[in-house]
Simulated assay, not measured.
Amino acid sequence: MIAAFTVQRQPFKDAVESAAKDLVRVQEIGGSLYLNLPIIYPDGSFVTVKLDQSAGGITVSDAGFAYREAEDVGAHRSFRRTANKIAEDYGIIVGDRAVSTEATIDQIERAVADVAMASWRIATVITEKAMEEDESELSAELSSRLRSVFGVEKVVEGAKLTGFSTSEWPVSAIVTIDDHKTIFQAVTSHPNSIYKASTAFRDIAATQAKLSLVSFVRSKAALGPKLALLAPSRIVEESQSDEQIWKLAA
């Protein structure tokens, strides 16, 4: 009985061990060791820490990856301010473009965890704030266009709708024409903005099928393959005419 269980369990154990090796990888580059961890930055890449031997033991840093995330969203100037606040929770050092700490051999595990989590939090906080500011700016532009096209009385800004999951979803605006409602949502090229809109659209559509859904984007090209995630909404670019916006709500 025990032997039979061991035979059945072994493939399962082998699969788990194989997955663990894939989740955490070590690579040597230029004398430094880079450790990829199963933690995801906002852009979808894995959090990576860099380990170097030093006079005092081992230097563990994020190799500037959180800073690069901030650069990607044009918010690198806020890196140090944000990093200083978060680094206090982990007792690590903040440089101009990286966070790091010194450790002994026995402290490597803790040092890696502290630097990795701090780097992830820094990147996430900066990216989310930048995304919110960008989306807020695009929403303000959208609201102005809608008021101009349909008139103030037909536009409700910042409304919330309940989806099939009973979650409440804030939307940029609702336009009502002859009892027909159209939801307009400003969507930036940032993945979080796209995924949030995609989830909201599907949840709302599942319970309010008669609503029309429209994504307002700066550029379809900027969204790339992620554009398909905005189904079931129709998509309008900010450069398109007021007539096109009217047609989507008519």
Rank of each mutant, 00 (worst) to 15 (best):
S219L: 06
S100P: 09
T82A: 00
S45R: 02
S189D: 13
V99T: 05
Y41L: 03
S193Y: 01
V236I: 06
V47P: 07
F216N: 12
L35Q: 01
I122M: 01
V16M: 14
F150C: 06
I183T: 10
R25T: 00
L37R: 00
I183V: 00
I194T: 11
K13I: 15
V217Q: 13
S212H: 00
G95N: 15
S198G: 04
L23D: 04
A130G: 04
V112H: 08
T182A: 01
E109G: 13
P38F: 03
M117V: 10
L33K: 02
A113P: 13
A205Q: 05
A222E: 07
S189A: 09
G44P: 08
A118R: 02
A159D: 14
D178A: 02
T162R: 13
A228Y: 14
P11N: 09
D96W: 06
A20R: 08
D14F: 15
L23Y: 10
R81Q: 08
T166A: 12
Y67S: 02
A63R: 04
Q244W: 12
S233R: 04
N36T: 12
E243Y: 07
L248V: 10
F65L: 13
K50W: 01
V171F: 00
I92V: 06
L229D: 03
L146D: 06
V187E: 10
E157D: 14
K220H: 03
I245H: 07
Y90W: 12
I122W: 05
A222S: 09
I183K: 01
D179R: 14
F65M: 04
L227V: 05
S172I: 06
T162I: 15
V171W: 00
R110N: 14
V49I: 06
G224C: 04
E128P: 02
A87G: 08
L23T: 05
D134K: 10
G95R: 12
K226V: 12
I108V: 05
E88R: 15
D134M: 14
A209W: 13
D96N: 07
Q8R: 05
G57H: 09
K247Q: 11
F150G: 02
F46H: 03
Q240M: 08
E128Q: 08
F184L: 06
V171N: 08
L227Q: 04
M131S: 10
P191C: 07
L227I: 01
T82L: 03
F65E: 03
A75E: 03
S78E: 09
I58D: 12
E243H: 15
A118H: 02
P170W: 00
A103I: 09
Q53V: 13
S143A: 11
T6P: 02
L248P: 08
A3G: 06
T48S: 00
I122P: 03
D43K: 07
D14S: 14
L33D: 09
K247T: 10
E88V: 09
E135W: 15
S78L: 06
V94Q: 06
R202S: 08
F216H: 08
I194D: 05
A19K: 10
A200N: 03
W246Q: 13
S165F: 14
E237D: 05
A206E: 10
R81E: 10
P42W: 01
F164N: 12
T176K: 02
V7C: 13
E137S: 15
A123L: 06
A250Y: 14
L248C: 02
Q27I: 04
V175W: 04
V149E: 11
F184H: 07
Q244Y: 08
D242Q: 03
A15G: 12
